[in-house]
Design a protein around this nucleic acid. Structure first.
Lengths: 220, 220
DNA sequence: AAAAGAATGTATAATATTGTTACGAATAAA
DNA sequence: TTTATTCGTAACAATATTATACATTCTTTT
């Protein structure tokens, strides 16, 4: 049984994966936790602890074999299989995601796009025709879909969510600005762009305040 | 001097803001921490503690005035001013962001888009002409820009980052799949879509494993 | 083949964060 | 005026995260 891994560790995994991929591309074959820590701006011990949660991938006196570690993390991340994704919402965002090659490269295959806007239905995006969302339920019943990407206005989410739940979708990549109520069996990953932007503006205004305070008063 | 607020609290702020906005739209004028907690799936005491970090916005025996609290959080998030943003990278993602009305509505004004691709330069996106990135430096020197949105391939980031730093940009909303090296004075907010998707696939494959384990062996 | 050096794995300690409980004080409502 | 409500806040408990330290194991060198 896997000990439960904390979210913080999980969130670092893609970053490890990215750095190892870069190293691999540059022909680096081995790396120590120390060296990697310096590059990633982490501590060596944290890296060792993180990786050790999943297994003993290194070797004392040697370090980590870059390719091996890369493959291990790939496996941990569940990237040794492919996933079928559908995009719900054929607007700008949905089209952008469908067009983005990097996802496909890693095994995430977009198999359909849905919208309810007659002006979008029929449009061809990277070889994918935008389908009428009215056919979504039927599509789910007759095709194997792993992940649904919600790229539609929040007001329309309620129209499609029941169908996704009933048809046993595994994961939802949610770009809509709502909190989804889903059964536990469904894994939801939220990307709330607005929240991200507000976080940025919060931090900006904090900096602003800090600078002002420093300018106004002289704490010496 | 502000006590330093933990990231977890900050990340919850936009969510409070969203819920309060919804309440406001529905004509709710007052709300208790208890009620809000039920809606947001938090505990009442956590809400009270979170909000109390920024001030005493509630009233004993009454609860919180929705509009007042909404305005307070708006102010905390730094949304009482407007921000000028430029988008660097006029591809799909850049165009999508420029087209997304919700940002503008909250005071984030896109003032320019840059790209180096001659086929994109000159294109008109929502009234914004895509400009040659060669003119970026000059643009920064002659216009007031608060936030740069990086929506370009990671291999091209190095070409524009120095100019942004030199010209004293305040914030970067980074959609490029790299870790930026910037001076402390610049606030960086990362949106790594690939990382988000990999996190999802990790969790999916964990579920998968769990289900298999439950099916294969009978721990009774 | 042995000794020295390097670097992991992991236990333990320290810190930070998050959540809970509790209750006085202020307010609203009856 | 009395009772019920609900916040603000302190104190505590539980988690989670990060840092420290070192024995162990492997590599490298001589």
């Amino acid at each position: 049984m896997d000990k439960d891994i904390s979210i913080a560790v999980i969130k670092r995994l893609p970053r490890y994966y990215r750095y190892l991929g870069d190293l691999l591309e540059h022909g680096v074959t081995r790396i120590s936790s120390n060296d990697l820590a310096r590059r990633m701006n982490l501590t060596a011990s944290q890296i060792r602890q993180d990786l050790n949660k999943f297994g003993c991938f290194g070797q004392q006196g040697y370090g980590y074999n870059v390719e091996l570690l890369y493959e291990e993390i790939k496996s941990i991340l569940g990237l040794e299989r492919t996933y079928n994704l559908i995009i719900i919402g054929g607007g700008n965002l949905g089209q952008t995601l469908a067009n983005y090659g990097n996802f496909q490269k890693r095994g995430f295959r977009f198999t359909a796009i849905f919208d309810k806007n007659p002006r979008l239905i029929g449009l061809n995006i990277r070889g994918l025709e935008i389908l009428d969302v009215a056919t979504l339920d039927n599509y789910l019943k007759t095709n194997s879909v792993d992940i649904a990407v919600l790229a539609l206005p929040k007001t329309n989410v309620a129209e499609v969510l029941p169908s996704l739940i009933e048809n046993g979708i595994s994961g939802i990549w949610n770009f809509s600005h709502v909190d989804l109520k889903t059964p536990e069996s469904i894994t939801v990953e939220n990307v709330h762009l607005t929240d991200s932007l507000l976080t940025l503006s919060y931090r900006l205004s904090q900096n602003e305040k800090g600078r002002k305070a420093n300018g106004d008063t002289d704490h010496s």
